[in-house]
Design a binder for these strands. Structure first.
Lengths: 215, 215
DNA sequence: CGACAGTCTGACCAAACGGTCAAGTTCAGG
DNA sequence: CCTGAACTTGACCGTTTGGTCAGACTGTCG
């Protein structure tokens, strides 16, 4: 949640400056946190990237942790909802294909969001513990039910629902979080729309049909 | 590479102390770097975990970067070789199953190694650029050839070899790097051998056969 | 225009950091 | 038991860091 501080929304149209500066800082912070992690990021670097004096940063966000929390909240909003495509009435192959495409879309257009999240989890999720234990867990539990239903109706093999979700997460996150490695292997300077299209097709095909020839 | 420094291996049996202390420091460093990343880790914290004074750490490893490099070298040694199971003469399903099992084995017994590597890549691989561009790229190119051969011989669907390898990497790394998330979703305090066995089975089944019912 | 909340910022600080150093202690070979 | 190399360490240093603050500026509403 953004910040508990003198929010002057009194009357109409106020706080424009605040809103503009806060979003500039959040954008800069997302980049710097993605590049260097929480501890490695410095408020000076974030402020510089937002082209504001450091003291100004601390005017809008009291502490580095508060700014980080705000960035995380933004990221979660983005990350949370993709799984909602999983509903009992849908054809699993469609839902899964759309999920992969959606996740990879965000990995391409907001790679830093993915990296901030990955970094947070990688280092033990000190800021997201309760989110993981509450919201995320419940959400997955719920979607696992949908997957079991798909299985019961014979549309899906008897996969382990949670591990299935892990695999979806893993394969889609990879392209944003490990992009240096992917780029090195593919020999690209930057991953383009075409690379992501190939990735989407590959992942979808593999998850739906596997790699073995059959019948 | 460990360190260019007065290595007293003169006569027999010397350097025992050095060897012991260096390995204690490396172990401690692996943990701390995994928990906090390169910038977040402090030499004081590493020294404390190794139960040595900080000055002693700097006696064995001149700088934090040198220590970090040594840790990375250790990690790479572990990570590098699993792909060697891919040879033209083998049955792909066996090779793949063994690869997944092998990678997940290391994810379980050396999760910090995986995290150090993941963190390095996540933050742009400043220490591993040349490794990625040379060794890794070549290695993948080579293994991609094997996969293409498998495809030509009709044992494998026409998957994109490199993206196929990415998927193998992604799904296996996930359990070490994102273990907090996995634990939260599964409701475990610690991932045990059984969890990893389930994961291995799930990943293998999914990659080989996909999730859709068929025929 | 007066007033006041909101915004801005250079200068500053204590704490923490990576790294150094000189003086000491231990250890094995002669 | 002597010697020299290897090892140990408390104290220290310059720099960087997150955060503060007092005072100046600005936009807007009555």
């Amino acid at each position: 949640m953004p910040s508990p501080r003198p929010r002057n929304i009194k009357a109409n149209g106020r706080g424009r400056i605040r809103e503009s500066n806060e979003s500039r800082l959040l954008k800069a912070a997302e980049t710097v946190f993605a590049e260097r992690g929480f501890r490695g990021a410095t408020t000076a670097a974030i402020a510089a990237r937002a082209k504001l004096p450091k003291a100004n940063l601390h005017y809008y966000f009291r502490t580095k942790a508060e700014l980080y929390r705000a960035v995380l909240a933004n990221v979660l909003e983005l990350w949370l909802d993709e799984l909602d495509r999983f509903t009992p009435d849908r054809e699993p192959s469609d839902a899964i294909a759309e999920y992969v495409a959606g996740k990879l879309y965000w990995s391409r257009v907001r790679p830093n969001a993915s990296k901030v999240f990955a970094n947070e989890i990688l280092h033990g999720a000190p800021f997201l513990e309760s989110y993981l234990a509450r919201d995320l867990r419940q959400r997955v539990e719920q979607k696992a039910k949908v997957i079991r239903q798909w299985i019961r109706s014979g549309k899906l093999r008897p996969v382990d629902p949670k591990h299935f979700i892990f695999q979806l997460w893993a394969s889609t996150q990879h392209y944003a979080d490990f992009d240096v490695q992917v780029r090195a292997v593919l020999g690209r300077r930057k991953l383009g729309e075409r690379d992501f299209a190939t990735a989407t097709a590959s992942i979808t095909a593999l998850i739906l049909d596997g790699c073995l020839t059959r019948c």
